[in-house]
Design a protein around this nucleic acid. Structure first.
Length: 482
DNA sequence: AAAAAAT
């Protein structure tokens, strides 16, 4: 076990770290901080929740010359929320040392950011697009940067930020320290490391610590049109403290959040089409527990550190297996247990196995709960609340009414049963409609009914019409997927 | 095929 006190850190950092309540360094911190302090290039394979922000943040902050007004460190992150979260953590670590950290991301007032940039921040945390925007406006100069961090590098690659990152790298001096963090290490990431890093040391959190053993993984086989009822029942049975429901598209997320609200759950949706202000307020409410169910696209899958998420429901199986790893990683954090349930339509069963191969872990089959089981779950909640109230003993104000009720009805069980019924939220059957998106593997539509949608059959054969005029020879097979 | 990210 490594203590922060043994890591040769300056008093200001030790003080900040103590104030944050950290004593022992996590495995990735114990390995990465000494290397970072030496100035070595570093590849860190770890997920969020392993303490990786501090792992690169502490050496980065140690190296800052606070008397210099130049930007000396830059961190690039894949989503705005992650950039905000990282900047907040760095601010906490660096405030005692008087290190100025600024988050720079899209969707917020650029003039305000420009004014903040003029105040001479030492560290910038940002998303690729907005960083580039500032570079082009000459409001951000990276000529004095000594440390560059690529956070969640695999995600940035998946999202096609590679060109942006290269453009940013061109404005950063070559003699710098580069730190790259990534949950997975696919070949393209290794290639980036070879191109932009100088004999990097690789720091990995051991496999045992990586596979998040505290997350129980299940799948439920359920036809698309029954998904919503199954979701509602699962929530009733599990009664999660905080749950995230992942949907495949922004539209579905909106519909799911609305439908859940209609059924009496306290739910809100988050996705990339919402204004940044809305995104932040939804996330804040969820973190404060004012919202129980967060419905999200993959915008919330990566890196976000929300403590206390007990359940993750993949309403739609994620498009690529890596996304699955990120999604379920939102639960079971900080040593707590978590449960992940993935909904699989019958035709997606094959794809489920591919996901399992990637995670090297089987998901346990779970039977969709019946309405009665959902009711039982809710009754249990009521009972627990009741027991709680009895334990607290603060029921004196109700004794009078209770006596009156008993006097009228003789049978105490009937009175209690009625009270339980009133207090219990019965599983709702309000019909809802969630628009079905196009399914994953395009199987040919057997259904040829004259439904009036004349374009229906064309959708399955992309390009047949439009390529006629200017068809390129290599596109000849484009009518059918491999 | 979708989502993320600059306006």
């Amino acid at each position: 076990m490594t203590k922060f006190a043994d890591l040769n850190l300056s008093p200001a950092i030790i003080k900040a770290v103590n104030r944050l309540g950290f004593e022992e360094a996590t495995p990735i911190q114990a390995k990465a901080i000494p290397l970072g302090l030496e100035g070595k290039d570093l590849i860190g394979q770890a997920q969020t929740g392993t303490g990786k922000t501090a792992a690169f943040g502490i050496p980065l902050i140690e190296k800052i010359d606070v008397k210099s007004p130049h930007v000396q460190g830059i961190i690039i992150a894949p989503t705005r929320e992650l950039a905000i979260q990282v900047s907040e953590e760095l601010y906490k670590i660096g405030t005692e040392a008087r290190v100025k950290v600024l988050a720079v991301y899209g969707g917020s007032d650029i003039q305000r950011q420009i004014r903040a940039l003029k105040k001479g921040p030492h560290i910038i945390v940002g998303t690729p697009g907005r960083i580039l925007d500032h570079i082009n406006r000459r409001t951000l100069k990276l000529g004095n940067v000594e440390t560059l961090v690529l956070d969640e590098a695999d995600e940035m690659l998946n999202m096609g930020f590679i060109d942006d990152i290269e453009s940013i790298l061109e404005t950063v001096p070559e003699e710098r320290q580069t730190l790259l963090f990534s949950a997975t290490m696919p070949t393209p990431i290794r290639r980036i490391a070879e191109r932009f890093m100088k004999s990097p040391e690789v720091v990995r959190v051991e496999a045992k610590e990586m596979t998040v053993p505290l997350i129980e993984q299940f799948f439920v086989k359920v036809p698309e049109r029954e998904k919503f009822d199954v979701l509602a029942r699962l929530i009733d049975v599990h009664s999660p403290e905080l749950a995230i429901v992942f949907g495949r598209t922004k539209r579905r997320v909106d519909e799911l959040a609305n439908a859940l609200t209609m059924r009496g759950y306290i739910a809100e949706g988050i996705h990339g089409d919402l204004t940044q202000a809305k995104r932040m307020s939804v996330l804040k409410k969820f973190k404060e527990g004012k919202v129980d169910v967060l419905v999200a696209t993959d915008v919330a899958a990566r890196g976000l550190d929300i403590s206390g998420v007990t359940h993750v429901y993949n309403y739609d199986i994620p498009q690529d297996p890596e996304s699955y790893v990120h999604r379920i990683g939102r639960t079971g954090r900080a040593g707590k247990e978590g449960m992940a349930v993935t909904f699989v339509s019958p035709r997606e069963m094959g794809y489920l196995r591919i996901v399992e191969q990637t995670t090297k872990k089987r998901m346990q089959p779970m039977r969709p709960p019946t309405w009665d089981e959902a009711l039982e779950g809710q009754q249990r909640i009521t009972m627990e609340k009741l027991e709680e109230a009895i334990k607290e003993g603060s029921v004196d104000e109700y004794r009078q009414v209770a006596n009156e009720l008993l006097a009228e009805h003789v049978d105490a069980v009937t009175v209690i049963a009625a009270a339980l019924k009133v207090l219990t939220k019965e599983p709702d059957k309000t019909p809802v409609h969630i628009t079905e998106e196009r399914p994953l593997p395009q199987k040919r539509d057997h259904y040829q009914g004259g439904g009036g949608d004349r374009n229906r059959n064309r959708r399955g054969k992309p390009g047949q019409q439009s390529y006629k005029g200017n068809r390129k020879p290599q596109r000849r097979t484009s009518g059918r997927r491999p």
